[in-house]
Design a protein around this nucleic acid. Structure first.
Lengths: 140, 140
DNA sequence: CGGCATCCTCCTGGATACTG
DNA sequence: CAGTATCCAGGAGGATGCCG
């Protein structure tokens, strides 16, 4: 399986401007909260503000609002307001959002599958005698 | 938080602690510079510090060092020091790093494929009369 | 050349309080 | 309930200087 991975074809960008744009998109989209909202809304297709907040324990209301606004702006989700009292707002992913969610699936699986190895690597790295000054492989 | 989920949705995490760990990993790994270094080292399998810096125009030496250290700690790349003067240090991805690079491939392709639609969505969103107060879809 | 240390600035993001 | 507005602390990260 690892062997099959060695010839993985990287989606190569050679155009500087395009590359920059793509990078910018990645930077915006590969944010922790964005990914989690994507995940939550993939499972429950329609949710209101508070419901999302409940599943993101640790996020502040400010960050959630900001994250949802950004995602809406980027066309990843749609915001629906029901003009009632008290206010009722629902969020759901667009086709674009769903496709991004699918794209991130690989990364999620990677994280789940390799968390052990990653933690092991960390532990080993941190176990070096001189803290902060790791012992890199030295070659001649 | 996810306590009320006794059933098993698609291919998802239902264990809170696991979910948290995976989330933490995602958060660390889904960083802009990390992704770019991953990309660069996928193409050129061995590069020294300055060569990497050249391809990451805009990054400070401090950030590059930090990024490389984190990646080394997480077992994504290997650092090789040649004890000569002047110093010569090379970096190359490990199997783990290569597999992560492959996992991100999908997101990269998504960004390239959908950048147009994303920009269009943004433009439309920004074109709303009251800036900052978008006109969400209102339902009854 | 690679990289650590220091200083300093800016932005992120949390806490809180107030509305429609 | 779903925000917006304000204040404020802490960390991210750039610039500079020195060293092996």
């Amino acid at each position: 399986m690892l062997a099959a991975m060695q010839d993985h074809p990287p989606p190569r960008e050679t155009n500087p401007e395009l590359d920059k744009l793509v990078t910018e998109i990645i930077g915006r989209v590969a944010d922790k909260w964005t990914m989690l909202v994507l995940e939550i809304l993939t499972e429950n297709e329609r949710l209101r503000f508070t419901r999302i907040a409940e599943q993101l324990e640790g996020i502040s209301q400010k960050m959630l609002t900001k994250t949802l606004r950004q995602m809406e702006r980027d066309g990843l989700l749609q915001r629906t307001v029901y003009p009632v009292v008290p206010p009722h707002v629902e969020y759901q992913l667009t086709e674009l959002g769903l496709s991004l969610s699918a794209a991130f699936c690989g990364v999620w699986m990677w994280a789940e599958k390799n968390r052990g190895e990653l933690l092991r690597a960390r532990a080993q790295f941190d176990a070096t005698p001189a803290a902060g000054v790791p012992q890199p492989r030295v070659a001649v």
